[in-house]
Design a protein around this nucleic acid. Structure first.
Lengths: 198, 198
DNA sequence: GTCTATACGCTGATAGAC
DNA sequence: GTCTATCAGCGTATAGAC
């Protein structure tokens, strides 16, 4: 559930205000350029509250991290329910990713930009989390069913989503001006049909 | 030229020792988790020398950044000289990228992993640097010549190199065990032919 | 649970001898 | 140019009142 989305106003629960403020700041300036005091100010909370709720800066980062994984997990599960067939499912995931990038850019930016291992060394890497495992399962199934070209799962998955991920990064970096969905059709076709002149 | 490569031994020039030490540390722990003292120790130099040569930690980061851009620029220029045609050139760039990832992983890691804007806000972004411009020119030319599918340059370029970049990242993160060149043929074919079942 | 004030370590940076 | 010793500031974390 878009928990963080609802907590922007000031009269929301404390822990929620802290998370939204921290997420914004982390994305704007980068984790290391944000102090607990910064978060405290933007969230209109005292430092004590932050340590009470999350035990410190890294605690906030971890909470955001798990939150993020949950959100992406829901996205994948929704797609599994709504579409069938590997190709349709992968395309729908890309579409949702593009939509999220426009409507909830902070979460996506935190997912893609943050080098989580750098400040949460003990957390398992993103690509071993459940939504990413589910995603690779979709690809594997698609290969079995003959919907997707045979090959090493990592390679195929990289080609499948590599283009979309790059576009999201370029969009987040302000290099691409148009909303990502503008390029959806073209991306999907180029990925499935190949880059050879049509 | 692989300037940094040659400076590992202790009897090399001071500025070079500083750069190699810093590069290693930045990649291992992340820029923000490395102090000037750490660099000083590993390079067997005094702090004073570091400030004399580079003016501080950020100065080192900038020097590495420009060094990196130069190296990548040479790579692209070499490819332009060695191969002709957009497709052959792009493939060769990917091949060289894969080789570099194995033989000189630190540079590649610094290029892909580091969030340079986070600690060098005033430096222009990587994708506006000359090698990346040259790279997009190759793609543009390829579209004109009918070698590459028509479309938005950003989208096409993302699809073209997105898969390779993802693979490099996965390799650097230790997710992929085999040397990247193992997957080169498969990647290139999947990218150009598309992911539909062959 | 929330707040303020405070302690303390680390880090980037400088001064000045050699 | 290189070094050592030292400083000042910031940022995390805690103590203790309310």
């Amino acid at each position: 559930m878009p928990y963080l989305k609802k907590c922007t106003p000031e009269n929301e629960p404390v822990d929620c205000r802290i998370l939204t403020a921290a997420l914004e700041l982390f994305v704007e300036r980068g984790y290391h350029n944000v102090s607990v005091h910064d978060v405290q100010k933007r969230a209109n909370v005292s430092i004590g509250s932050i340590y009470n709720h999350f035990g410190g800066k890294e605690g906030i980062a971890k909470a955001l991290y798990h939150h993020l994984i949950n959100e992406f997990d829901e996205l994948v599960q929704d797609v599994l329910a709504e579409a069938s067939g590997a190709r349709a499912r992968c395309n729908l995931i890309i579409q949702r990713l593009f939509e999220y990038t426009e409507t909830r850019r902070h979460i996506i930016a935190y997912m893609l930009h943050a080098k989580h291992r750098e400040f949460m060394p003990e957390e398992p890497p993103l690509c071993s989390s459940s939504p990413f495992v589910a995603l690779r399962d979709i690809v594997r199934q698609g290969m079995e069913d003959g919907e997707i070209r045979q090959g090493d799962p990592w390679v195929i998955t990289s080609v499948l989503f590599g283009g979309a991920i790059r576009l999201v990064q370029l969009r987040l970096d302000g290099v691409i001006d148009a909303p990502l969905m503008t390029h959806y059709e073209e991306l999907v076709e180029a990925t499935w049909q190949g880059l050879g002149s049509a």
